[in-house]
Amino acid sequence: MTISHNHTNTSLESEANGHNGNLDHIPPEAIKGLSEESISCLRNLATYNAPPLADFGIVKQAAVLVALFQKDGDDQLHVLLTTRAKTMRRHPSQTALPGGKVDPEDPDVIFTARREAFEEVGLPLNHPSIYHLTVLEPVMTILPLNSHMKNHIIVTPVVCFISSPSIISTLIPNPDEVDAIFTHPLKGVLTGSLDLKDTESLVDIGGEWWPHEEEFHSTNDRIGSIGVYRMHRFRTTRSPIKGLTSDVLIQTSMIAYNSPTTYPRFASDQSPFSNLISGVVKDLPFHIDKSNNSGPVEWGGTEGERYRSSETWANA
C-alpha cells in the first residue's frame, strides 16, 4: 500500500499545530448538534498538553488512534474499536484501538496512528470531517513474569474527533488484521457502568466474551515482569476492553471528563507508567542480547499463586 507521506504529513501537522489549545480548528457546523457534554470533552482533550515525547532508545514503539464521535440521536462520545483477527500472532481475538508499530519512515506518531487506522479499517487518511485533538502520554505493555524485556512496547495514544458519524458505517475491516469493528461509550470506561440505552446488544454475562460475574466492569490484580498491575475489563457488544486498550481509554476518559474514575484505578504499589517506561528504556540495552530461560511465562497473583500466560512473550 502506497501512501504519500509528504502530503499526508502536511495535513496532519496543520491539524496538530493549528488548534491553539481550543476548538477553533473545528468549524462551527462540525460541532453543531453535539451535546454540551461532548463539546466539553472535546475542548478538554484539545487543551491537554502532554509532556514532549522522550527518547525511548531501543524500546519498541507503537501508536494507537482514539477516534471519538457522537452517534446520531445520542448525547455522548463513543470510541472506535476493533476485535483483532484470530490469526494474529499477538493478542488474537482481543479488543484493540486501531494502531501499530512506528515505522522508521513515519514522520511522527500522528501519522503512524492514522496510517494504521487506514490500513486496518479504511479510516480515510485525509478527510474534512476528521480533526486531530491531542497526543496523550505514552503507556506500556505489561508483560507476564519471565518475559524478555525486549518485548515491551511503548504506545502513544493519538486522539481525533470524527464530526460525521456516517464515516463509521463505511469502514471495512482488513481481514488479515481485524475480525470486527465496533464502538463503546467513552464515559462507560470512566464510570465502569453504562446507561440503559447502551446496554442493548451487550454480550451475555458468563458467556465466551464476558466470563465474569460483574455486570459491566471487572478487575483483578496481578504481578508481571515489572511489578503489580491492575487489569481492567469492560463488557462491550463484542470482545472486552482490557489491558493496554483499557489503560489508554481510562486515561482518555479522565482527561475528557476532567474527572477521576469512579473506581480505584491502580493496584496498591502499582508504579506510574512514566516510571515503568523510564526503567525499561534505561535497562533494556543491558538485556537485549541475553536469552530468557528462567521458567514458564506466567502471571503472579497477589496471594502468591501462579497461572500460565496464553502469550509466548519470552520466545518472541
Rank of each mutant, 00 (worst) to 15 (best):
L53P: 11
L53S: 14
F56C: 14
V102T: 12
P138R: 13
N20Q: 09
S129E: 00
F216V: 00
A256Y: 07
L65W: 05
M149I: 09
T237C: 04
T191P: 01
A113L: 15
A63K: 08
L186W: 12
E137N: 11
P51Q: 06
V280W: 02
S163T: 10
I3F: 13
R265Y: 06
K71V: 00
E105T: 15
S268L: 15
N126L: 09
H184S: 08
Y257D: 10
R90H: 13
D75N: 15
L68V: 00
M254K: 01
W210S: 00
L125S: 01
K187Q: 12
R306D: 03
V139K: 07
K282W: 07
K187Y: 03
S40V: 11
K60Y: 06
G57M: 10
A46Q: 10
I162E: 00
A50Q: 07
P173N: 03
E305P: 05
I154V: 04
L65N: 08
E116V: 11
R235T: 04
Q270V: 03
Y48H: 11
I142V: 13
R233K: 12
N275F: 14
G279K: 15
H78V: 12
F118E: 15
L77Q: 00
P296F: 11
L194Q: 05
P138D: 07
N220R: 00
V102E: 13
T237W: 01
V109Q: 06
S38A: 13
P272E: 02
A16H: 07
D204V: 13
R233A: 02
G243C: 04
S294Q: 14
H184P: 02
H287Q: 09
V189G: 12
T237M: 12
R222P: 14
I288Y: 05
A117W: 15
Q94A: 14
R235P: 05
D103N: 11
I205R: 12
T236H: 06
H212W: 11
T245M: 14
Y131W: 10
Q76Y: 11
N315S: 08
I277R: 10
I26P: 02
I223R: 03
D72S: 06
E13K: 12
E215A: 10
T262Q: 02
S163H: 03
L202T: 03
H91V: 01
